[in-house]
């Protein structure tokens, strides 16, 4: 039973990938059965605009990854240069029941990319979270501010060079001679 489903899923993915290559100016790849579009920071907005026009009516997720200390070998298609940060945007087409993920490589200490707000206003908080946690700036965003950390916080906690902090615990009965 599961083999059949897997084969069917593989067919679906291949078909979706073929369609996507034609429609969007992006490199299409497959990751564990999901369709991935690799765009650059310049073509990102064009790619999501094309996807939006193509019926991808909802932005389902937007996040980022900091690949600073990645131990493994990253599998990126030819023509895509690895950057320190990767922005991952997931879109969904409810009519065709398709999902795509758009991955964009970003570099530099304060990378900048266009906001998806004008197409998908639901990106507002997600982009604020990515800014808060990774320091990726979304240009033309209506409210580029921190969302989870306090407004005056310094640093971006989910960056790999941001250390995990700890507060020493003082136990009541513990002796002070140590």
């Amino acid at each position: 039973m599961s083999d059949e489903i897997a084969a069917e899923a593989a067919d679906d993915v291949a078909e979706a990938a073929a369609i996507a290559t034609l429609r969007y100016d992006a490199i299409v790849a497959d990751s564990n059965g999901d369709v991935i579009l690799h765009a650059t920071s310049d073509t990102y907005l064009d790619t999501i605009t094309a996807a939006h026009a193509d019926g991808f009516d909802q932005l389902i997720d937007l996040t980022a990854v900091d690949y600073l200390t990645y131990a493994g070998k990253r599998s990126l298609p030819e023509g895509i240069e690895a950057g320190r940060f990767e922005l991952v945007t997931a879109l969904i087409n409810h009519q065709r029941r398709e999902r795509i993920r758009i991955r964009v490589q970003l570099d530099g200490d304060e990378p900048t990319i266009a906001t998806a707000f004008d197409l998908y206003p639901g990106a507002e908080y997600l982009e604020r979270e990515v800014y808060d946690m990774f320091g990726i700036v979304f240009s033309d965003h209506p409210d580029m501010s921190r969302v989870l950390m306090p407004e005056n916080w310094v640093g971006h906690p989910l960056r790999k060079d941001y250390a995990v902090g700890s507060i020493p615990v003082q136990f009541k009965a513990a002796s002070n001679q140590r």
Partner: peptide
């Protein structure tokens, strides 16, 4: 194994 995945 290396890679990325999304499950919902």
């Amino acid at each position: 194994p290396e890679g990325e995945a999304y499950a919902c």
